[in-house]
Design a protein around this nucleic acid. Structure first.
Lengths: 188, 188
DNA sequence: GTCTATACCTGGATAGAC
DNA sequence: GTCTATCCAGGTATAGAC
């Protein structure tokens, strides 16, 4: 892929996160990477097409991250802990811009945008991965529920972290999720 | 207050919720209540001023709702259950547009909008009210944490409900929150 | 108090020179 | 492949008639 196309996607990826999709203009992206506005249309047919490309990048980045967590973890329990800890690891960004997945899905939902379904697929990647970990822990039957539950909790924490910029709250909730995780694995 | 000003605020309140603040234009509001675009500036100096008015309305509506819950409930436990149940009661809207409080705070945060702090105050109303209920239940020390925790959980559920339009998930999570509520009140 | 007309800007998108 | 110039729609905001 051409360097310019690549840099458009990367800049758009960041700006869509920081400012929202709708609010991010071609001018803003162009300023960022020092190209002219007209140049976009050599690489993309429309703004929507840039969004598509950004979503593909996010999908593959997410896959890589999830695979990486599995490789670096000793077991499924550690994997799930890694997931929970992104709230701490990425706190600065979350505090400033919220969760990149959740906020985009929410925005596209309100815009009634075609790509909402595709944006949701990033959520689905996390859900399937979490479900897999819960199954490995022996929770075949409840795996789906547990995955949704944990994703919802992390989304809620990210939302309030963004609103209130409160790191203590985030650390407290991470501990709560750790405790919850221990509890569901003790019961047997 | 004049009827027109009132209707502008009401229409803006709904549209800001359904489409987002930034994405809602004067034309869209004008169409809704059948006035001309120029008419806005007799009642408001700017779009930001409409947002201010909408936030004030939301603040007072929220206060009324919370007071109403207290009056209609037998005790603090019922009050908190009422809070949890808005996810069910308002499911249709949440499914379509997310939580009105959370999504606005998130949007204004990304826009770096001055009114973000004011929008957060609606969250604070819920938090203070929940805190009060937890104190009434005898959780003086943890009341703050419990309030933030429950608000975060409901935010997370709303986010995923909006993304996936899944009522079963919402009902399951409501039950989980009820169970959690029972648990923290058993331990003594 | 409400309207029409309009100013001015910025958005996405196109055409064509280089 | 990148640029400049330009188009058109739509945004907020203003002026002034009624």
């Amino acid at each position: 892929m051409q360097a310019t196309k690549r840099s458009i996607i990367d800049a758009a990826n960041i700006l869509f996160y920081q400012q929202g999709y709708d609010h991010t203009s071609f001018s803003r992206i162009a300023d960022e990477i020092h190209i002219s506005r007209g140049n976009f249309y050599h690489h993309f047919k429309s703004k929507d097409e840039i969004l598509e490309a950004v979503l593909q990048v996010r999908m593959s980045h997410t896959c890589e991250m999830l695979n990486g967590w599995e490789k670096e973890s000793d077991n499924a329990l550690d994997c799930i802990r890694r997931f929970i800890q992104i709230l701490d690891v990425n706190f600065d960004k979350i505090q400033s811009y919220g969760c990149p997945v959740g906020t985009l899905c929410t925005e596209l939902g309100k815009l009634n945008h075609n790509a909402q379904e595709e944006a949701n697929q990033v959520f689905v990647l996390f859900l399937d991965w979490l479900k897999k970990q819960f199954i490995l822990l022996g929770h075949e039957k409840e795996a789906e529920h547990l995955a949704m539950h944990l994703l919802a909790r992390s989304q809620g924490v990210a939302t309030l972290a963004h609103a209130f910029q409160d790191r203590d709250f985030v650390m407290y909730e991470i501990q709560e999720m750790f405790d919850w995780l221990d509890n569901i694995n003790e019961e047997e």
